[in-house]
Each structure stands twice: as C-alpha cells, then as structure tokens.
C-alpha cells in the first residue's frame, strides 16, 4: 500500500508522524502540569505575530511569504501572550482562567484584524497565511518534513534528559522548590518545548487545532497505563499514528483539510482508549462494577486488605 504512494505523500506522512510524536511526548507533561489552557492561548496568540511578520516583510520588500520570518513572528507573539497571562495572574487578583480567556480572545481578534489588512495588500501571497489557521499538509516539502523529524528527536531528547525534573515539578512543585530545584526554569523549558511544537506545527495542523494534537494523545494514553514512562511512550505512539493516518487520509481524499483529519484521527483513538482500555476504560470499569455487584449480592466478598478501599 505504501508503495503506491508518491514521494510527496511519503514526505507528508513522515512529517505529520514526526509532529504527532513530538506533540505526544511534550503534551504528556503539559497535560500533567495543567498547562493545557495556557498552551491553547499560546497557539491562538501566534496569529497576530504571523500577520504582523507578513506586514513587516511586505514593508521591507520581502517577496511573498518568508517562512522563517512568519514563524519567528508566531513564536514572538505566542510567547508575549503567555507572558501577558502570567503578568495578569501575578499582579492582579483575576483567576488564571479569566486571564487566559482575555488574552486568547484579544490576541486572536488582533490577528484577525491584521489578517484583513494583509488581504487588502496589493502584494501577493496573502492566501498562504490562511493555511496557518486551519493547517495544510499538501504543500509540505522534504526540508520541512525533515525539520519536523528533527523537532521530534529534540523533544524526545530534552524530555529524556529532564525526565526526572519534569516529573517532579509536574507532580509537586512545592516539594521541588523546597529541594532547591529551579521550578520556574524547568517550567520554562517545558513551555519552550510546547511553543516549539506549536509554532512548527502551525503549518501542518493550524493554530486552532494544534492544541488538540497536544492534549488528545496523552489524554488517551492515560487510559492505558499508570506509569509516566509508558504514558509518554503511548502518547508518542498515538500522536504519531494520528499524524500518519490523518495525513494519509487527507492525501487520499483530496480537499480534506489535513489538520482537521489528523485531529479527528486522534479523537477516534482517544474514544477507543476511553471505551476499551483494559483497566481504566469505561467498559472495563462497568464490567468490574457489575461483577462486584453480583458478587456482593451473592455474599462472595468481604472487606479486607486486598481491596484498594480496605487497608
């Protein structure tokens, strides 16, 4: 089957799989550190940066769209958004969710306004900007796919190196700080990884849906395991599968937006996990509950050390 695919499709497949692996690995810690909403704000806050960078490029006479410039703009305004959230929660009494909501909509609104300015420009290339919102894999070049591969490796490397530190800060930040770990800097490393995945994934999945690719694979992985090590691995697997299958489907049926298909694939895997995972899945839980009810009705069980609620 793979043999039938053209070189271009293989490139896209590889790139999307690598992106999925990277987001699964990074997303696991983001989810456990409860940074999912902040990351959503981060991805939405990239839009004004993208449009602004395009305008800046047009001003200085850069032809069409220069990808590095656009991604730099995306990263800059995304980070600015996160800093704004941190400043609001630190210096005011507003709760974090309010700060996230305010920053997300403000930055996204600004981005839409700038986008309409871009579209009014006589210079071409404005159409390409819209792909950042919903994503597009069809145009992926070999170099971009290789870049996504490097990203996946980098994410895996950083997480492997800082595994213990990331785990500690995610589980118990206070204890980490009492031991003298620089929790703020460890969080910063995690946010840098999230930013990297977001910005690099913008073109493929789009800024609205990239957060789904960061959250869904680890959330699905949690159903299968009680250990962080395997959760990272399973999330990488589910993320990679989502990227690969999604990109393949969108290549097979033209006009299917890749980002949406990738995210829907991830959601399908999530739903399967939610239902069928052996211990934490819904069916297993329902089955255990019914069996227990039956056993209690027959008087077969007594309360003792063996049960989790005994002891």
């Amino acid at each position: 089957m793979i043999g039938d695919l053209g070189f271009n499709t293989l490139v896209v497949l590889f790139g999307a799989t690598a992106l999925g692996i990277a987001s699964g690995v990074v997303g696991t810690f983001m989810l456990l550190r409860r940074r999912a909403l902040v990351s959503d704000a981060l991805s939405h806050a990239t839009l004004p940066g993208i449009a602004g960078a395009f305008l800046l490029g047009a001003w200085f006479g850069v032809e069409g769209r220069s990808l590095p410039l656009l991604l730099a703009g995306a990263a800059a305004s995304g980070v600015l958004g996160v800093l704004a959230i941190q400043a609001i929660t630190r210096w005011t009494r507003l709760p974090e969710d309010a700060a996230i909501g305010a920053v997300l909509s403000c930055f996204f609104g600004l981005g839409i306004v700038l986008l309409s300015v871009v579209q009014g420009l006589p210079t071409g290339g404005a159409a390409g900007i819209k792909t950042f919102i919903f994503g597009q894999t069809a145009a992926m070049r070999a170099a971009e796919a290789a870049g996504l591969g490097v990203l996946a490796l980098l994410a895996a490397l950083v997480v492997a190196l800082l595994f213990k530190e990331l785990k500690l800060v995610a589980f118990d930040e206070g204890f980490a700080r009492v031991q003298g770990w620089p929790a703020g800097r460890i969080d910063l490393a995690l946010m840098a990884l999230v930013t990297l995945v977001t910005v690099v994934g913008l073109q493929t999945v789009g800024l609205i849906l990239i957060i789904a690719l960061l959250i869904t694979p680890p959330a699905a992985a949690r159903f299968w395991t009680d250990s962080l090590e395997s959760m990272v691995g399973i999330a990488a697997l589910i993320g990679g599968l989502s990227g690969g299958i999604g990109a393949w489907l969108s290549a097979k049926y033209e006009d299917m937006p890749a980002g949406a298909v990738i995210v829907l694939t991830a959601t399908a895997l999530f739903t399967l996990s939610l239902l069928f995972a052996p211990k934490r899945g819904l069916l297993a839980q329902t089955w255990r509950y019914r069996r227990l009810r039956g056993a209690i009705a027959r008087g077969d069980v007594t309360l003792g050390e063996g049960t989790p609620w005994g002891a």
Partner: peptide
C-alpha cells in the same frame, strides 16, 4: 496539595526525596 491520580507509584514518589542527591539529568 497534589493530584493523587498522577501516573506514578508509591516508590516513584518516595524516590523524589533523593532527587536532590542524584542531581540534574
């Protein structure tokens, strides 16, 4: 102060007490 649904074992948590001695990375 922590989320007890976190995917770690009791031994994992106790080992965190040694992290400072173990050091970075």
């Amino acid at each position: 102060s922590v989320d007890w649904d976190f995917p770690v074992s009791a031994l994992d948590v106790v080992a965190m007490g040694r992290y400072r001695m173990i050091g970075w990375g």
